[in-house]
Design a protein around this nucleic acid. Structure first.
Ligand code: MN
Ligand code: MN
Ligand code: ZN
Ligand code: ZN
Lengths: 143, 143
DNA sequence: ATTAATAATGATAATTATTATCAATAGGGA
DNA sequence: TCCCTATTGATAATAATTATCATTATTAAT
Protein backbone atom coordinates (compact mmCIF):
# COMPACT_ATOMS: atom_id res chain seq x y z
CA UNK A 1 0.00 0.00 0.00
CA UNK A 2 1.34 3.44 -0.85
CA UNK A 3 2.46 5.55 2.10
CA UNK A 4 2.19 9.25 2.72
CA UNK A 5 5.82 9.78 1.68
CA UNK A 6 5.13 8.12 -1.69
CA UNK A 7 2.36 10.55 -2.46
CA UNK A 8 4.52 13.48 -1.35
CA UNK A 9 7.38 12.25 -3.52
CA UNK A 10 5.01 12.12 -6.46
CA UNK A 11 3.98 15.71 -5.84
CA UNK A 12 7.61 16.81 -5.46
CA UNK A 13 8.45 15.21 -8.78
CA UNK A 14 5.73 17.29 -10.42
CA UNK A 15 5.71 20.96 -11.27
CA UNK A 16 3.62 21.65 -8.17
CA UNK A 17 5.03 22.38 -4.76
CA UNK A 18 3.68 20.86 -1.60
CA UNK A 19 2.17 23.86 0.14
CA UNK A 20 0.53 23.67 3.54
CA UNK A 21 -2.95 23.67 2.03
CA UNK A 22 -2.09 20.92 -0.41
CA UNK A 23 -0.60 18.83 2.36
CA UNK A 24 -3.79 19.32 4.38
CA UNK A 25 -5.97 18.09 1.52
CA UNK A 26 -3.65 15.17 0.87
CA UNK A 27 -3.74 14.26 4.56
CA UNK A 28 -7.52 14.29 4.52
CA UNK A 29 -7.55 11.90 1.58
CA UNK A 30 -4.99 9.61 3.18
CA UNK A 31 -6.90 9.59 6.45
CA UNK A 32 -10.02 8.61 4.48
CA UNK A 33 -8.47 5.93 2.32
CA UNK A 34 -11.21 3.78 0.80
CA UNK A 35 -13.82 6.55 1.09
CA UNK A 36 -15.29 8.45 -1.83
CA UNK A 37 -15.46 12.08 -0.73
CA UNK A 38 -17.07 15.11 -2.35
CA UNK A 39 -15.25 18.45 -2.49
CA UNK A 40 -17.51 19.79 0.23
CA UNK A 41 -16.74 16.84 2.49
CA UNK A 42 -13.03 17.33 1.94
CA UNK A 43 -13.45 21.00 2.87
CA UNK A 44 -15.15 20.11 6.17
CA UNK A 45 -12.35 17.70 7.09
CA UNK A 46 -9.63 20.08 5.99
CA UNK A 47 -11.02 22.91 8.11
CA UNK A 48 -10.61 20.81 11.25
CA UNK A 49 -6.86 21.33 11.04
CA UNK A 50 -6.75 24.47 8.85
CA UNK A 51 -9.87 26.49 9.61
CA UNK A 52 -9.49 29.13 6.93
CA UNK A 53 -8.75 27.03 3.88
CA UNK A 54 -11.05 28.07 1.02
CA UNK A 55 -13.29 25.94 -1.15
CA UNK A 56 -11.51 27.18 -4.28
CA UNK A 57 -8.20 25.84 -3.01
CA UNK A 58 -9.81 22.51 -2.23
CA UNK A 59 -11.16 22.25 -5.77
CA UNK A 60 -7.85 23.32 -7.24
CA UNK A 61 -5.91 20.82 -5.15
CA UNK A 62 -8.25 17.91 -5.84
CA UNK A 63 -7.98 18.67 -9.54
CA UNK A 64 -4.18 18.71 -9.41
CA UNK A 65 -3.95 15.53 -7.37
CA UNK A 66 -6.32 13.81 -9.79
CA UNK A 67 -4.25 14.94 -12.78
CA UNK A 68 -1.20 13.38 -11.09
CA UNK A 69 -3.27 10.23 -10.58
CA UNK A 70 -2.82 10.49 -6.85
CA UNK A 71 -6.61 10.68 -6.67
CA UNK A 72 -9.32 9.08 -8.75
CA UNK A 73 -12.21 11.37 -9.67
CA UNK A 74 -15.55 9.78 -10.38
CA UNK A 75 -19.26 10.48 -10.58
CA UNK A 76 -21.42 8.06 -8.60
CA UNK A 77 -24.59 9.62 -7.35
CA UNK A 78 -25.33 12.15 -10.00
CA UNK A 79 -24.61 15.81 -9.76
CA UNK A 80 -21.27 15.94 -8.02
CA UNK A 81 -17.85 14.42 -8.30
CA UNK A 82 -16.25 12.29 -5.62
CA UNK A 83 -12.57 11.69 -5.05
CA UNK A 84 -10.71 8.75 -3.60
CA UNK A 85 -7.09 7.95 -2.96
CA UNK A 86 -5.65 5.91 -5.80
CA UNK A 87 -3.10 3.18 -5.36
CA UNK A 88 -1.19 3.00 -8.60
CA UNK A 89 0.20 -0.41 -7.74
CA UNK A 90 -3.17 -1.96 -8.54
CA UNK A 91 -5.34 -1.56 -11.60
CA UNK A 92 -8.24 0.72 -10.83
CA UNK A 93 -11.14 -1.15 -9.31
CA UNK A 94 -14.82 -0.99 -10.22
CA UNK A 95 -17.79 0.03 -8.14
CA UNK A 96 -21.20 -1.17 -7.08
CA UNK A 97 -23.54 1.69 -6.21
CA UNK A 98 -26.41 0.60 -3.98
CA UNK A 99 -29.70 1.93 -5.31
CA UNK A 100 -31.19 1.82 -1.82
CA UNK A 101 -28.63 3.21 0.64
CA UNK A 102 -26.23 4.79 -1.84
CA UNK A 103 -23.19 2.96 -0.50
CA UNK A 104 -20.27 2.48 -2.86
CA UNK A 105 -18.56 -0.91 -2.77
CA UNK A 106 -15.40 -2.00 -4.51
CA UNK A 107 -14.93 -4.79 -7.01
CA UNK A 108 -11.49 -6.27 -7.56
CA UNK A 109 -12.31 -8.49 -10.53
CA UNK A 110 -11.42 -7.14 -13.90
CA UNK A 111 -12.61 -9.04 -16.92
CA UNK A 112 -12.45 -6.19 -19.35
CA UNK A 113 -9.10 -6.91 -20.99
CA UNK A 114 -10.67 -9.21 -23.54
CA UNK A 115 -13.35 -6.66 -24.32
CA UNK A 116 -10.75 -3.93 -24.71
CA UNK A 117 -8.80 -6.11 -27.12
CA UNK A 118 -11.91 -6.64 -29.24
CA UNK A 119 -12.47 -2.92 -29.41
CA UNK A 120 -8.87 -2.21 -30.35
CA UNK A 121 -9.23 -4.66 -33.24
CA UNK A 122 -11.85 -2.26 -34.58
CA UNK A 123 -9.31 0.56 -34.70
CA UNK A 124 -9.85 2.30 -31.38
CA UNK A 125 -7.04 2.97 -28.95
CA UNK A 126 -8.33 2.49 -25.41
CA UNK A 127 -6.59 4.20 -22.53
CA UNK A 128 -9.13 4.00 -19.75
CA UNK A 129 -12.53 2.71 -18.82
CA UNK A 130 -15.19 3.44 -16.28
CA UNK A 131 -17.46 0.68 -15.05
CA UNK A 132 -20.16 0.99 -12.44
CA UNK A 133 -22.71 -1.56 -11.38
CA UNK A 134 -26.00 -0.43 -9.93
CA UNK A 135 -28.00 -2.63 -7.64
CA UNK A 136 -28.39 -3.49 -3.98
CA UNK A 137 -25.62 -4.05 -1.49
CA UNK A 138 -25.68 -7.22 0.65
CA UNK A 139 -27.29 -5.38 3.56
CA UNK A 140 -30.04 -3.86 1.44
CA UNK A 141 -30.73 -6.90 -0.72
CA UNK A 142 -31.87 -8.86 2.33
CA UNK A 143 -35.20 -7.06 2.29
CA UNK B 1 -36.03 -2.15 -34.47
CA UNK B 2 -38.75 -0.46 -32.44
CA UNK B 3 -41.08 1.79 -34.40
CA UNK B 4 -42.72 5.05 -33.43
CA UNK B 5 -45.99 3.26 -32.64
CA UNK B 6 -44.18 0.97 -30.18
CA UNK B 7 -42.87 3.92 -28.21
CA UNK B 8 -46.27 5.57 -28.27
CA UNK B 9 -47.89 2.37 -27.06
CA UNK B 10 -45.43 2.25 -24.22
CA UNK B 11 -46.33 5.79 -23.23
CA UNK B 12 -50.05 5.01 -23.46
CA UNK B 13 -49.60 2.03 -21.18
CA UNK B 14 -48.06 4.32 -18.58
CA UNK B 15 -49.68 6.83 -16.32
CA UNK B 16 -48.61 9.62 -18.66
CA UNK B 17 -50.59 10.85 -21.59
CA UNK B 18 -49.10 11.58 -24.97
CA UNK B 19 -49.49 15.34 -25.22
CA UNK B 20 -48.39 17.35 -28.22
CA UNK B 21 -45.18 18.46 -26.55
CA UNK B 22 -44.29 14.94 -25.49
CA UNK B 23 -44.91 13.68 -29.00
CA UNK B 24 -42.64 16.42 -30.33
CA UNK B 25 -39.80 15.43 -28.00
CA UNK B 26 -40.29 11.77 -28.81
CA UNK B 27 -40.24 12.56 -32.53
CA UNK B 28 -36.97 14.43 -32.11
CA UNK B 29 -35.43 11.43 -30.39
CA UNK B 30 -36.73 9.02 -33.02
CA UNK B 31 -35.48 11.23 -35.83
CA UNK B 32 -32.05 11.24 -34.14
CA UNK B 33 -31.83 7.55 -33.39
CA UNK B 34 -28.24 6.63 -32.60
CA UNK B 35 -27.35 10.15 -31.50
CA UNK B 36 -26.64 11.21 -27.93
CA UNK B 37 -28.39 14.54 -27.47
CA UNK B 38 -28.27 17.05 -24.64
CA UNK B 39 -31.44 18.70 -23.34
CA UNK B 40 -30.47 21.92 -25.06
CA UNK B 41 -29.99 20.14 -28.39
CA UNK B 42 -33.39 18.48 -28.02
CA UNK B 43 -34.91 21.91 -27.36
CA UNK B 44 -33.42 23.34 -30.57
CA UNK B 45 -34.78 20.47 -32.64
CA UNK B 46 -38.17 20.54 -30.94
CA UNK B 47 -38.60 24.26 -31.60
CA UNK B 48 -38.32 23.65 -35.34
CA UNK B 49 -41.80 22.14 -35.29
CA UNK B 50 -43.13 23.66 -32.04
CA UNK B 51 -41.53 27.06 -31.63
CA UNK B 52 -42.81 27.86 -28.17
CA UNK B 53 -42.05 24.67 -26.30
CA UNK B 54 -40.22 25.49 -23.07
CA UNK B 55 -36.98 24.08 -21.73
CA UNK B 56 -38.73 22.92 -18.54
CA UNK B 57 -41.09 20.76 -20.56
CA UNK B 58 -38.17 19.27 -22.46
CA UNK B 59 -36.43 18.34 -19.22
CA UNK B 60 -39.65 16.96 -17.75
CA UNK B 61 -40.35 14.90 -20.84
CA UNK B 62 -36.83 13.52 -21.15
CA UNK B 63 -36.99 12.50 -17.51
CA UNK B 64 -40.31 10.73 -17.99
CA UNK B 65 -39.21 8.94 -21.14
CA UNK B 66 -36.03 7.81 -19.40
CA UNK B 67 -38.01 6.49 -16.43
CA UNK B 68 -40.10 4.45 -18.87
CA UNK B 69 -36.83 3.23 -20.40
CA UNK B 70 -37.81 4.68 -23.75
CA UNK B 71 -34.65 6.74 -23.47
CA UNK B 72 -31.26 6.04 -21.96
CA UNK B 73 -29.77 8.87 -19.94
CA UNK B 74 -26.03 9.01 -19.59
CA UNK B 75 -23.12 11.28 -18.77
CA UNK B 76 -20.32 11.22 -21.32
CA UNK B 77 -18.49 14.49 -21.50
CA UNK B 78 -18.78 15.77 -18.00
CA UNK B 79 -21.20 18.38 -16.84
CA UNK B 80 -24.35 17.53 -18.72
CA UNK B 81 -26.54 14.55 -19.41
CA UNK B 82 -27.20 13.17 -22.85
CA UNK B 83 -30.16 11.12 -23.97
CA UNK B 84 -30.53 8.48 -26.64
CA UNK B 85 -33.35 6.35 -27.90
CA UNK B 86 -33.28 2.91 -26.28
CA UNK B 87 -34.21 -0.27 -28.02
CA UNK B 88 -35.40 -2.62 -25.34
CA UNK B 89 -35.05 -5.62 -27.63
CA UNK B 90 -31.30 -5.49 -27.18
CA UNK B 91 -29.24 -5.31 -24.02
CA UNK B 92 -27.92 -1.82 -23.54
CA UNK B 93 -24.69 -1.25 -25.38
CA UNK B 94 -21.47 0.32 -24.12
CA UNK B 95 -19.64 3.39 -25.32
CA UNK B 96 -16.23 4.53 -26.40
CA UNK B 97 -15.68 8.23 -25.84
CA UNK B 98 -12.91 9.67 -28.00
CA UNK B 99 -10.57 11.80 -25.92
CA UNK B 100 -9.62 13.81 -28.97
CA UNK B 101 -12.77 14.61 -30.95
CA UNK B 102 -15.37 13.71 -28.31
CA UNK B 103 -17.25 11.32 -30.57
CA UNK B 104 -19.28 8.59 -28.92
CA UNK B 105 -19.13 5.15 -30.53
CA UNK B 106 -21.14 2.07 -29.69
CA UNK B 107 -19.90 -1.33 -28.58
CA UNK B 108 -22.09 -4.35 -29.04
CA UNK B 109 -19.97 -6.88 -27.16
CA UNK B 110 -21.02 -7.59 -23.63
CA UNK B 111 -18.71 -9.71 -21.52
CA UNK B 112 -19.98 -8.53 -18.18
CA UNK B 113 -22.36 -11.37 -17.35
CA UNK B 114 -19.61 -13.42 -15.77
CA UNK B 115 -18.44 -10.45 -13.74
CA UNK B 116 -22.00 -9.74 -12.59
CA UNK B 117 -22.37 -13.35 -11.49
CA UNK B 118 -19.20 -13.10 -9.42
CA UNK B 119 -20.50 -10.00 -7.73
CA UNK B 120 -23.87 -11.55 -6.99
CA UNK B 121 -22.08 -14.44 -5.29
CA UNK B 122 -20.83 -11.85 -2.82
CA UNK B 123 -24.39 -10.92 -1.88
CA UNK B 124 -25.11 -7.99 -4.16
CA UNK B 125 -28.14 -7.86 -6.42
CA UNK B 126 -27.14 -6.21 -9.69
CA UNK B 127 -29.81 -4.58 -11.82
CA UNK B 128 -27.80 -2.38 -14.14
CA UNK B 129 -24.33 -1.35 -15.13
CA UNK B 130 -22.65 1.52 -16.86
CA UNK B 131 -19.48 0.98 -18.82
CA UNK B 132 -17.59 3.57 -20.77
CA UNK B 133 -14.25 3.27 -22.50
CA UNK B 134 -12.11 6.32 -23.03
CA UNK B 135 -9.56 6.51 -25.77
CA UNK B 136 -9.23 7.45 -29.40
CA UNK B 137 -11.63 6.68 -32.20
CA UNK B 138 -10.28 5.08 -35.41
CA UNK B 139 -10.10 8.45 -37.15
CA UNK B 140 -8.22 10.13 -34.32
CA UNK B 141 -5.90 7.24 -33.51
CA UNK B 142 -4.30 7.49 -36.95
CA UNK B 143 -2.25 10.50 -35.84
C1' DA C 1 -72.92 22.30 -22.39
C1' DT C 2 -71.24 24.03 -17.96
C1' DT C 3 -68.71 23.32 -14.23
C1' DA C 4 -65.25 21.49 -11.34
C1' DA C 5 -61.11 18.91 -10.67
C1' DT C 6 -56.75 17.58 -12.41
C1' DA C 7 -52.74 17.53 -15.21
C1' DA C 8 -49.52 19.83 -18.18
C1' DT C 9 -47.17 23.84 -19.76
C1' DG C 10 -44.02 27.93 -20.08
C1' DA C 11 -41.76 31.70 -17.93
C1' DT C 12 -38.77 32.52 -14.71
C1' DA C 13 -36.63 32.19 -10.10
C1' DA C 14 -33.81 29.29 -7.33
C1' DT C 15 -30.39 25.89 -6.56
C1' DT C 16 -26.05 23.51 -6.86
C1' DA C 17 -21.60 22.33 -8.24
C1' DT C 18 -17.92 24.18 -10.35
C1' DT C 19 -14.90 27.70 -12.48
C1' DA C 20 -13.12 32.42 -13.17
C1' DT C 21 -11.47 36.73 -11.35
C1' DC C 22 -8.62 39.41 -8.70
C1' DA C 23 -6.43 41.59 -4.92
C1' DA C 24 -3.58 40.07 -1.10
C1' DT C 25 -0.01 37.07 0.53
C1' DA C 26 3.94 33.94 0.68
C1' DG C 27 8.24 32.19 -0.70
C1' DG C 28 12.50 31.84 -3.42
C1' DG C 29 16.41 33.59 -5.42
C1' DA C 30 19.48 37.90 -7.25
C1' DT D 1 16.05 43.62 0.87
C1' DC D 2 13.67 43.71 -3.53
C1' DC D 3 11.65 41.51 -7.38
C1' DC D 4 9.23 37.77 -9.42
C1' DT D 5 6.11 34.26 -9.66
C1' DA D 6 2.98 30.99 -7.60
C1' DT D 7 -0.66 30.37 -4.40
C1' DT D 8 -4.49 31.55 -1.80
C1' DG D 9 -9.24 33.03 -0.25
C1' DA D 10 -13.22 35.77 -1.03
C1' DT D 11 -16.47 36.33 -4.09
C1' DA D 12 -18.60 36.79 -8.65
C1' DA D 13 -19.89 34.25 -12.62
C1' DT D 14 -21.41 30.19 -15.10
C1' DA D 15 -24.06 26.32 -16.47
C1' DA D 16 -27.15 22.62 -15.91
C1' DT D 17 -31.00 21.34 -13.65
C1' DT D 18 -35.01 21.79 -10.61
C1' DA D 19 -38.74 24.31 -8.22
C1' DT D 20 -42.44 27.59 -8.27
C1' DC D 21 -46.50 29.39 -9.88
C1' DA D 22 -49.90 31.45 -12.72
C1' DT D 23 -52.07 30.09 -17.04
C1' DT D 24 -53.90 26.76 -20.14
C1' DA D 25 -55.59 22.30 -21.58
C1' DT D 26 -57.89 18.04 -20.62
C1' DT D 27 -60.97 15.06 -18.44
C1' DA D 28 -64.95 13.75 -15.52
C1' DA D 29 -69.12 14.82 -13.43
C1' DT D 30 -73.36 17.17 -13.35
MN1 MN E 1 -13.41 3.17 -5.11
MN1 MN F 1 -25.30 4.88 -27.26
ZN1 ZN G 1 -27.40 -0.57 0.35
ZN1 ZN H 1 -12.00 10.97 -32.29
Amino acid sequence: MMQKRDYKAKLDASQYKLTGQRATVLDVMIKNRGQHLSAEEVLQQARLTRPNIGIATVYRTLEKLASLEILYKGMFDSGKYRYELADEREHHHHHVVCMNCGSISEIKDDLLCELEKNIEKQGFRIVDHDLKFFGYCPACSKF
